[in-house]
Amino acid sequence: MRVVKTIAVLLLAIGAQAATDPKWETCAPCHEDLVTAFSRNQHATAKNGCDSCHSNAAKHAETADPALVGNPKKAAPKAGEATCLACHKNHPSRVGQVRSGHGRGQVACTSCHSVHAPPVPQTASSRNQQCFACHAETRAQFARPFSHKLTQGQLNCTDCHNPHGSFNGRALASAQRHGSNEPGCLKCHIDKRGPFRFEHAPVRLEGCASCHEPHGSANPRMLVRQDVATQCLECHANLPGAALAATRQVQGVLPPAFHDLRDPFYRNCTVCHTKIHGSHVNRAFLK
C-alpha cells in the first residue's frame, strides 16, 4: 500500500511539470475538429505542432492551398515513412522490422496507423478488419468452422503476430514472443509450455504449426490433416527405408508400435498418447 501511495505521489509530482505550448493556433481555425481530437493524442506533444509532420503548414495556412502542405499519407510510402522515422527511428518496434513482410513490402506506416486518432485501443474486430483488408486469404481461413475466436471478437491478429516484425528463431518472422522467449501460442496454451521430462520433438523444433493450422481447420483439433492417425503416421512412417533409418537424416521415422489400424481404437492416436505435447511421466506420452 505504501508503495502504491509513493507511486501516486511521484506521478503527481512529475505530471505537475507539464507545460502549456499552444502550437495549434495556426491550424485550429480551419481544422478545429482535428485539433480538438488531437489534444488527447501522443502526437500532440510533437515539438513543432502540425508542422512536425505536415511540411509547409504555415504557407498552406496563408494561402489555403491544399497542394502546398505536405501530407505523409498521400506521399509515396518511402517518403511517408521518412516523416514517421524522423521521431520513431530508434524505437523498440523497429528491432525486428528488417525481417518483417511489411518492411520488405514497403507498407506505409499510415496504411495501418491513424496518426490523428485518439489513443484508445481498437476493438479486436476493428483491428482484425484492418488486417483482413490486405490479408483476404487469412479471412478465408478464419471462415473455417474450427478456428481461433477472431471473428467472435475475442482475439485480434496482434495477439499472435507482431506487424512490425520480430526477430524470431523460427520461420514465422511475424510471430509474437512470450514469457521465457516462447512462441506466442504458449501465452494462452500454458499447459503445453513444459519443459517436459519427455519432449515431443516437433513441438520444440518446428513449433505448433507443424501439426496445427492456427487460422482455421476442418478438424476439431485444428490439425493440418483430416484425422489424427494420418497426421501422426506421416512422420512415424515405419521404416521408410533402411538407408534413411541408418543415416538418421530425418527424425521420428521408426515404428512407434505394431498397431492394427483397422481397429478404430488405433485410428485416434491421442486416445492413448494423451500427453502428446510432452510428458513429465511417460516416454511414450501415455500419461
Binding site: R139, A140, Q141, R225, E234, A237, N238, L239, P255, H259
Partner: peptide, 25 residues
C-alpha cells in the same frame, strides 16, 4: 501426398490430403 507403412503389416499406404475451398464474404 506422402507414403507411409502400415504399422501392423508394413504394407505401403498413401496419405493423400486434399482440400479445395471456396470462401466468400
Amino acid at each position: 501426398d506422402i507414403l507411409y507403412r502400415n504399422p501392423e503389416n508394413f504394407g505401403t499406404i498413401r496419405s493423400l490430403y486434399r482440400d479445395d475451398s471456396h470462401a466468400a464474404t
